[in-house]
Amino acid sequence: MGKLPPYATLGEKVWHYAFYVICALIFFFLIFPIVVIIPLSFNALPYFTFTPEMLRLDPAGYSLEHYRDFFTNSDWQKAMWNSLAIAPMATLLSVSLGTLAAIGLSQSHVPFRGPIMAVLISPMIVPLIISAAGMYFFYSRLGLQGTYWGVVLAHAVLGIPFVIITVTATLVGFDRSLTRAAANLGAGPVRTFFRVQMPLILPGVISGALFAFITSFDEVVVVLFVGSAGQKTLPWQMFIGLRENISPTILALATILVALSILLLTTLELLRRRSERLRGLTPQ
């Protein structure tokens, strides 16, 4: 926005500050629902309600009960381990296949580029309920429904569009003469990839990986269909927590996850700064 010039009229000044107020309100709208769950996660009663005790700031209205529940209840622990077993594997699959394909797609002559792109992006745009139902029937027939690999494959395919989008974005700014130089200097394609291309597109790959990871980690519609009890992930357990037993444990978990998200986002930001430095773009 910059500073107002000294000759600004009164109207301009009013508008200038009103604009900031509006933006602040919108930021408030964005953040408030996330902030509000934090005190609720310390509720002593098992309901999503601000009790009179909580509003009086009476310590009796607060407890760590739901945090304790998360860390001791075997359902939640199993769900966490399931999520941690499924999400990294799904991420690995979508990142490795996705990065290769993104490199292929960014070559100058790719036949049928449009249709191919449409197919690869489709998991993001097809409504989840349709994907979930389709995979449910199809995977059942292949014997993949209700197995670890079934859920991993389903989640991997949902993460692919994110990898494709982020990696092709970094490849757009990629200087092709670097690979040619490497080839000229006698490096094979594999070596060129790992020594030249990979370090430069790494930020895109990592950010795609984070998106793919979060897609799997936060996915509830597809896993409800494709998974079975043995693959109960955290979002699934949260869904049960919302539907079947009112359990504010999901708020405790959410608070933990918000803290982790902040950590991840900060990492992402630092990575981006590094990438810009590497590509010679200095931040303003």
């Binding site: 629902p33 309600t49 509830v220 949260m238 919302l242 999901i250 998200s261």
Partner: peptide, 18 residues
């Protein structure tokens, strides 16, 4: 990005409370 990365279920239940 923070809301973007917070579980959909959590955000929805937060709106219920609000």
């Amino acid at each position: 990005l923070l809301p973007f990365w917070t579980s959909l279920l959590v955000r929805t239940s937060a709106w219920k409370v609000l």
